[in-house]
Amino acid sequence: MRIRHKARAVLLDHDHLVFLKRGWPGGDSYCTTVGGSVEPGDADLEAALRREAMEEIGGTIGPATEFLTLTEPGATTTVVEHYFLADLLDMDLSRRHGPELGDPDTGDFAPVRVPLSRPAVAALNLQPPALAEHVLRHVDAWGAA
């Protein structure tokens, strides 16, 4: 059985959260976190997270704190997703790069800023559901921090 680790981030941008809006022609769109698989060249989960933030949104992030781990058992590979909370220090879409940008099967993905509030998060169709539940439970505290 193989285990694949992913590093993902809920990004705080002052009084907003930053997610990725995903979608394919003819399908429903949804939001998810910035992040992806840990690559062999990544020193650790946080290094993978920083690389993914640059690739997907051209962003740099501050210190990251892990707040949730979700495990998806599969027939041949178990995926372990590590979710972090981090401040978004800057974002410049012209710095985006990586294999996702040129792959038509990836679909569209673009950063979306939403107010740091329960109603705004509830309206997102944030995936996966366990992440959405966790964010809804904690968004008020994150806003007060």
Rank of each mutant, 00 (worst) to 15 (best):
P40K: 04
V38R: 06
T60A: 02
R118F: 15
D87E: 14
F84G: 05
R50D: 04
A43I: 07
Y83E: 00
P99S: 13
L116H: 06
P40G: 01
C31G: 05
P104G: 08
D90H: 02
V79K: 09
I57F: 10
W24R: 14
G23T: 05
L93E: 14
P104Y: 08
E52V: 07
E46T: 14
P119A: 03
G107C: 11
G58R: 01
T76D: 11
G74D: 00
T32M: 13
R2H: 14
E46G: 00
G35I: 05
V10C: 00
K6F: 07
E72H: 09
L89P: 08
W142I: 07
D90S: 12
R113Y: 12
M54I: 08
R113P: 00
E133H: 14
S117D: 08
H16I: 02
L12N: 10
L70T: 12
E52N: 10
S94I: 05
P115G: 01
D13N: 11
H82Y: 06
L124W: 11
D90K: 01
A43G: 11
P104F: 08
P115A: 10
Q127K: 15
P128W: 05
D103N: 10
D42H: 07
P40A: 06
A53W: 01
C31A: 15
L85W: 04
T78R: 09
V139G: 05
H134E: 15
L136I: 04
L12G: 03
P40Q: 00
G102D: 13
I3T: 15
S29E: 15
E133N: 12
A48I: 04
V112G: 02
E56D: 07
D92T: 11
S29K: 07
F19C: 03
G27S: 10
R22A: 00
R50M: 02
V112L: 10
L85A: 00
V135P: 05
S94F: 02
P99L: 13
G102M: 02
E72Y: 14
A7N: 07
D103Q: 00
A48H: 01
H16W: 03
V114F: 05
A132S: 14
T32R: 12
K6V: 01
D13F: 04
D108C: 05
P129C: 03
L45Y: 06
K6Q: 11
G143K: 08
H82Q: 02
E39D: 11
G23Q: 02
R113D: 03
H138R: 13
L49H: 03
K6G: 09
A64G: 07
P104L: 10
V34E: 01
T60Y: 02
L136D: 04
E56Q: 15
M54K: 13
T60C: 01
A64C: 03
L17A: 11
V114L: 11
F109S: 07
G59P: 09
G107R: 08
R113M: 12
A43S: 14
Y30S: 13
